[in-house]
Computed example of a mutant assay.
Amino acid sequence: MEKILEEILYTLKELQSVKLQNQKQEKLTYSLEECAAISGIGRNTLLEETYKVNSTFPYFKVGRKIQVNKAMFEKWLQEMSKNHTELRGEQLKCVQ
């Protein structure tokens, strides 16, 4: 009986170790909900981006689930911010 309990305890410790290692690994993709939480852009707005014809939004589908590449999403946000700033600058020049 004591030996069985020791084996169970050993197995539980191994499982806990594996779980901790998995938690330390970074995610490579986000869900739309995670993208919305990270960026502050609404989930519906992001969903609209996935349905636009010429959208540059970096998503892909796995079955019915929409996934977004983490690195590409961060780059997309930077590009959108840069383009918006440039467009705003051009609009301001026209007003002056």
Results as ranks from 00 to 15, higher is better:
Met1Asp: 15
Met1Ala: 15
Met1Lys: 12
Glu2Arg: 15
Lys3Val: 09
Leu5Ile: 04
Glu7Tyr: 03
Glu7Met: 05
Glu7Phe: 02
Leu9Asn: 09
Leu9Thr: 12
Tyr10Asp: 10
Lys13Met: 09
Glu14Asn: 05
Leu15Gln: 13
Leu15Arg: 12
Leu15Trp: 09
Gln16Ala: 12
Ser17Lys: 13
Ser17Pro: 00
Val18Glu: 14
Val18Gln: 12
Val18Ala: 14
Lys19Met: 10
Lys19Leu: 04
Gln21Glu: 14
Gln21Arg: 12
Asn22Gln: 11
Asn22Trp: 04
Gln23Met: 11
Lys24Ser: 13
Lys24Thr: 09
Lys24Gln: 15
Gln25Tyr: 09
Lys27Thr: 04
Lys27Val: 00
Leu28Val: 11
Leu28Glu: 06
Leu28Lys: 13
Thr29Ala: 03
Tyr30Gln: 05
Tyr30Met: 08
Ser31Gln: 01
Leu32Thr: 00
Glu33Met: 10
Glu33Arg: 09
Glu34Ala: 06
Glu34Tyr: 06
Cys35Ala: 01
Ala36Trp: 01
Ile38Phe: 09
Gly40Asn: 11
Ile41Gly: 02
Gly42Ile: 03
Gly42Val: 03
Asn44Glu: 15
Asn44Val: 07
Asn44Leu: 11
Thr45Ile: 08
Leu46Gly: 07
Glu49Pro: 02
Glu49Trp: 12
Glu49Ala: 07
Tyr51Asn: 06
Tyr51Pro: 00
Lys52Gln: 15
Lys52Gly: 10
Val53Gln: 11
Asn54Lys: 06
Ser55Gly: 14
Thr56Asn: 13
Thr56Ser: 12
Thr56Gln: 14
Thr56Val: 08
Tyr59Gly: 02
Tyr59Pro: 01
Phe60His: 05
Lys61Gln: 15
Val62Tyr: 07
Gly63Thr: 08
Arg64Pro: 07
Lys65His: 14
Lys65Val: 02
Lys65Ile: 05
Ile66Trp: 06
Gln67Cys: 10
Gln67Pro: 01
Asn69Val: 06
Lys70Ile: 04
Ala71Val: 10
Ala71Ile: 05
Glu74Thr: 07
Glu74Arg: 12
Glu74Phe: 02
Trp76Val: 02
Leu77Ser: 02
Leu77Arg: 12
Gln78Cys: 09
Met80Lys: 15
Met80Cys: 15
Ser81Cys: 13
Ser81Gln: 12
Asn83Trp: 08
Asn83Arg: 14
Leu87Met: 04
Leu87Ala: 07
Leu87Cys: 01
Arg88Lys: 05
Gly89Phe: 06
Gly89Leu: 07
Gly89Ile: 07
Gln91Leu: 13
Lys93Gly: 02
Val95Trp: 04
Val95Phe: 03
